[in-house]
Design a protein around this nucleic acid. Sequence first.
DNA 1: GTGGTCTAGACCACC
DNA 2: GTGGTCTAGACCACG
Lengths: 134, 134, 134, 134
Amino acid sequence: MWIEIDFRDKRPLYEQIASKIEEMILRGVLSKDEALPSVRSLAMELSINPNTIQKAYSTLEAEGLTYSVSGRGSFVADAGGLLPKKREEIFRELDGIMQKAKVIGLTRLELMAYIQGDVKSSPGRTKAKEESDR
Amino acid sequence: MWIEIDFRDKRPLYEQIASKIEEMILRGVLSKDEALPSVRSLAMELSINPNTIQKAYSTLEAEGLTYSVSGRGSFVADAGGLLPKKREEIFRELDGIMQKAKVIGLTRLELMAYIQGDVKSSPGRTKAKEESDR
Amino acid sequence: MWIEIDFRDKRPLYEQIASKIEEMILRGVLSKDEALPSVRSLAMELSINPNTIQKAYSTLEAEGLTYSVSGRGSFVADAGGLLPKKREEIFRELDGIMQKAKVIGLTRLELMAYIQGDVKSSPGRTKAKEESDR
Amino acid sequence: MWIEIDFRDKRPLYEQIASKIEEMILRGVLSKDEALPSVRSLAMELSINPNTIQKAYSTLEAEGLTYSVSGRGSFVADAGGLLPKKREEIFRELDGIMQKAKVIGLTRLELMAYIQGDVKSSPGRTKAKEESDR
DNA sequence: GTGGTCTAGACCACC
DNA sequence: GTGGTCTAGACCACG
């Protein structure tokens, strides 16, 4: 299947998995009412404890990204209505960064310049980038 | 003293303390070679175990923000040379956010606009911010 | 297990342990992603407090020699990239020695001669060394 | 007077002072039977606790580098006979380094090459040098 | 079971 | 008094 887990990641496994699935939903890879793989099958595929998958699915449901029908499985919810909440979340993170930036004397303009000039698309290459920066 | 610990914060105590002190150093509130409060005194003041303070101080020293002399105390190091590293750290965080933003269709321009016109910061204080910002 | 602690050694226990493990990693005795013994088990084996082992493991992780996954264990990191740093460290030590040598009139040639023809190592083992050196 | 103490040095003060004086003796800056400054005067000059100076002088005497006449002060001993001991000491340190070097695959030849090619004597050069100097 | 955090109390060398 | 190390025992989240 599509998920790969990184054991060196400090985050708990269930959160890692949940966020991967969340990304797929928001990206539209998984569409409304599509079924997620069963807990057991996904657990086997990732050779991971089913409890971990269960927890990942639970958090997804708690965040409103999926809904579960007992006895049937989990399905992706309507993603449209959730975007504003995600937006808010991102802006809050951005607030945190701006605060840190201010502490070390990084101005808003510098942050904006970085965002404008930043060239990333595929996740994973962050090194060749740091060069081209500054 | 100047530090207050927030028990609702999920981060470990020692990290909370360390980051508070780090901020003061970067802000210039604490200047080079100035003495930090003794492990024991700060522990008492925050009614926290000395070992926890010790750990906070150790991590600060490991990051090069302070130096400690056994039997004399802990002192803030020369912060000047560390700013570039901090800058890089912030930019890397920013990379993460930009990636998330792209997933939900938030454009760079929107992010930049938010940074430029930012009004809300930590939840609750929405008005008095621009003033305290200087 | 493989570690033995020397109570005559003045270095703290955690450092002794950390450096033993570091040596094994650099030597290749422990290979990438191999699991270290659990904190508790190693503590029991050495009849030492788990916190002490924890500290040893923490310092190793801080130096980038290992990574730890909460709830799963500690594992050795990719040591390859760290050799240059170690090299530098050794050369810096060598600088220190050369300075001391100069003070008492020991010439570089004498040092080089000693290195080339070195026969004695740690006090007590004077003969069997060249063999075990391979 | 001639000694300057570095508060960021991890070594205890008394050892720092003792080693500075030892170096002067070995260098010949202080000659046989010359008087060291009185404990009290040196303490005042360095604005340091007299006990600390006392301890430094004691260790020097214990190592045979000085002798003290009660009621008169401390004087430097005959340095000539001590050189072999110092030589031994340095070679033992060198042994330690060679062992570490071997662990990371640094050959004796590389060490020798470093010693030969190292250019320290006139103030300056060799980046890692400034550290080990002082 | 694992790593991680925290407390409480002790001892050490140094100043 | 200071920082640093160590022990003993506890609790937590994760798997």
